[in-house]
Design a protein around this nucleic acid. Structure first.
Lengths: 281, 281
DNA sequence: GTCGTGTGTATCGCAGTGTGATACAAAGTT
DNA sequence: AACTTTGTATCACACTGCGATACACACGAC
């Protein structure tokens, strides 16, 4: 699975930091400490490891040994990393959850969407998700899990590339075209499965279709044997702020039954959230 | 709601930093940046505000104006805060979710518990939670929500004081006594409702009972009209690593029906997780 | 309109903090 | 036991973050 953090390796560190700051005050140490935390996410996807040794942190964060140690120890004393005294390896600390809560408590959209999503999940006993765009990724912010799904797909915070996933497509489709183009341009259009579209013209045609229909079904674009349905949550001005996403797994859901059942459910759920959203304003 | 971060106000900043570092390398700027992020959590509970102005951040984080601005801007460029260009106020950024994912992906206990909790939630259509101890709080790490519940009680990452909640009591009960005592000593034994026990002797008696019975039911200790059930998830050595928590809300659940239905469900669910845990080792 | 007051923003010399090369210690490997 | 690899400790220097200060801007009040 590709990831944006691919490009924050060693040589780009300084560049990345300097990129957006444009004269704004900036504390380099803070950026470095987050490089360390990000290293763990990369470690999970690239090395399939939950805990990291100091030298692994070095490689994954792009910091030298001294810096890696300083920041790792700092994060340990703050509780955001834990250190096994035996193996001397670091792992993510439970205090990291605090930030999820901090963000979600103040997230009006999630608050409105949650009960509606829960109801929707009961119709066919399926997973139902809420996705939002961040940079070139769609991030799952609310997930109503079902027991059958795999653990990784139950967790909020998962990022998937916007361009090749149903929720991403549907959000990009209901956005000012210039912005959508910018996202596509910044995206790493890599082929994930053999069915992944990577041609910008084709992608834009797909988005246009999604805009007309008001939903999108992605067939094995980012995952084999997975048909994903997504419908946009719209603000009053018609701009998408999120997407309702309902995955249909292969043995149980084929393309036809997805169109017959999951599509109307996703569209209806998204519309109900959109309505509650405008009412609440 | 009381919170550990109560004591990280202005005068204690240096003290807190120095407290645990004991010669370990420590980068002060990193600590300060997290003070800023914590400020938002305090702002939510104390001021009921989702976004904060610069001077509010000053007060809540204990930093001076210059520092608050430097770190806030830094966090904005890193994506962990967002800034409204109009109001010039800051709010938590969506990138904060990443850390939740980072922690949870590597969290074996949650991975094992998730499907078991989902099943349990379907028995009586109730919320089912997994709680873990962090300092003097019980943190909800996994929550299976039901539509009826309030938004705040659906979110993972919520912290509640351990001493006066069912999950906290049950975890403390199944711990080496010295450690449990240390937690109680460090706790801010404040009366939350008129039914809250605050006397250490009584609390310890309660814990002893919980240890004997293998579960605990807290009756309106931390919330009125709320009867909470909790059972411990145990390691092979008998030590609690978490608690299964099932709240029963008043109109629907009285003490009797809780004991009859929710207690066995919680105990059974916790035991199943404990079993899967030892198998996986 | 003109003050006030409370904010947010920009500036800048100095002190102090983070830096990273180096050297040391302690595990794992052969 | 010799080697390699990884983690820890040390320390003088330079640069970075510091925070007092001054400036700009928005809102009231009247």
């Amino acid at each position: 699975m590709l990831d944006l953090s691919d490009d924050d390796a060693l040589p780009d560190l300084a560049a990345e930091a300097a990129a957006d700051r444009r004269g704004k005050p900036y504390v380099a140490s803070v950026g470095k400490c987050f490089q360390v935390l990000k290293a763990f996410r990369r470690g999970q996807t690239e090395l399939r490891q939950r805990d990291l040794g100091l030298t692994e942190i070095c490689k994954l964060s792009g910091l030298d040994k001294s810096a890696a140690q300083r920041f790792s120890e700092t994060l340990v004393t703050l509780g955001y990393l834990e250190k096994d005294p035996g193996t001397r390896r670091y792992r993510p600390g439970i205090a990291l959850i605090d930030f999820y809560y901090t963000f979600m408590v103040s997230h009006r959209l999630a608050q409105i969407a949650m009960p509606i999503l829960i109801e929707a999940s009961k119709v066919y006993d399926t997973t139902v998700n809420l996705c939002e765009l961040a940079d070139t990724d769609a991030i799952y912010t609310v997930r109503i899990p079902q027991a059958k799904a795999s653990y990784g797909t139950m967790l909020a915070g998962r990022r998937v590339p916007a361009f090749c996933t149903a929720p991403g497509t549907v959000i990009l489709a209901h956005m000012p075209e210039a912005e959508a183009d910018a996202v596509l341009a910044a995206s790493d259009l890599r082929r994930i499965t053999e069915h992944t579209l990577t041609d910008v013209t084709e992608l834009k045609a797909q988005m246009a279709e999604a805009r007309r229909k008001g939903f999108h079904v992605s067939d094995q674009q980012s995952q084999v044997h997975n048909v994903s349905t997504a419908a946009p949550v719209l603000r009053q001005d018609g701009r998408a702020v999120a997407a309702v996403h309902i995955p249909g797994y292969a043995p149980q859901w084929d393309l036809e039954s997805v169109h017959e059942k999951l599509v109307p459910l996703a569209v209806d759920t998204a519309r109900r959230i959109s309505d509650s959203l405008t009412e609440a304003m």
